[in-house]
Amino acid sequence: MPLTEKKVLDSNNGLEFQDLRNEEIHRVCFKEASFNNIDMRDTSFANTNFVNSKWEHIYFSDVTVNMIQMGGTIFENIVRPKAGKSQLLEEPGTGNWVNVEPVMFKKC
């Protein structure tokens, strides 16, 4: 069931998305939901429960994670892009941007 009838076309790979840009979604249960081909650039999460979630093939760059409880969390197969410097790149889901800046953990 679509959340909206509004549509937007991804200019990089031609996929059609439901257009929820600039929407505010509150008090929603996505328990056992599956998300695929999602463009979540410039979004924010607060008071969000990701317990037992599984994230795979995620373009996770220029992200700030603050005040998070990570007990029992496993990070594996983490890679940095194979580029000498940050650059534009034709890869779906990246917004054509590859960021090779270092990953930092502070006050852990």
Rank of each mutant, 00 (worst) to 15 (best):
W97L: 00
T64A: 13
N37E: 12
D19N: 15
L20Q: 11
M70P: 01
R27Y: 12
T73R: 05
V100D: 13
D19G: 06
N96G: 00
D10H: 07
N22P: 00
P92M: 09
E24T: 11
F50L: 07
L9K: 15
W97K: 00
N12P: 00
I58P: 01
K82P: 00
N66Q: 14
N77L: 02
C29K: 07
F60W: 14
K31D: 15
E101W: 03
N49S: 12
E91R: 05
K107I: 05
L20M: 09
K107S: 12
D39C: 06
R21V: 03
R21H: 10
N99Q: 03
K7W: 02
L20Y: 10
E90S: 06
F45K: 01
E56K: 09
E16Y: 02
K31A: 13
R27E: 15
M1E: 14
I25F: 15
N96W: 02
V51L: 12
V103S: 14
N96F: 10
V103Q: 13
V100P: 02
E16H: 04
N99E: 04
E5Y: 07
M104G: 04
C29I: 00
W55P: 00
E23H: 09
N13M: 06
A33M: 05
D10G: 01
E101S: 11
A33S: 15
T94H: 06
Q69H: 10
G84W: 05
V28Y: 15
T94W: 10
S86F: 05
G72N: 09
M40E: 07
E91Y: 10
E90K: 05
G93V: 02
T43A: 12
G93E: 03
I74Y: 11
N36F: 06
E32V: 01
T43R: 02
V79W: 13
S11N: 06
N52Q: 11
T4E: 11
N49L: 06
N12D: 15
R41M: 07
Q87V: 07
I58R: 02
K54L: 08
V65P: 05
N22Q: 10
S53I: 01
S53K: 00
D19P: 01
E32A: 10
F30C: 07
T43D: 15
Q69D: 11
G72L: 07
T48Y: 15
D42H: 14
V8P: 01
T4F: 09
M104W: 10
Q69W: 07
G84E: 13
N77D: 15
V79E: 14
V51N: 15
N12K: 01
P102Q: 04
N22A: 12
K31G: 06
N36S: 10
S53T: 06
I38F: 14
P92V: 08
W97E: 02
T73V: 08
T94C: 03
D10E: 11
S61R: 04
G14Y: 06
E91I: 11
V63P: 03
V28T: 09
V100S: 11
G93K: 02
N96K: 03
H57Q: 08
A83V: 01
G95T: 05
W97F: 13
G14M: 01
N52I: 02
F30A: 08
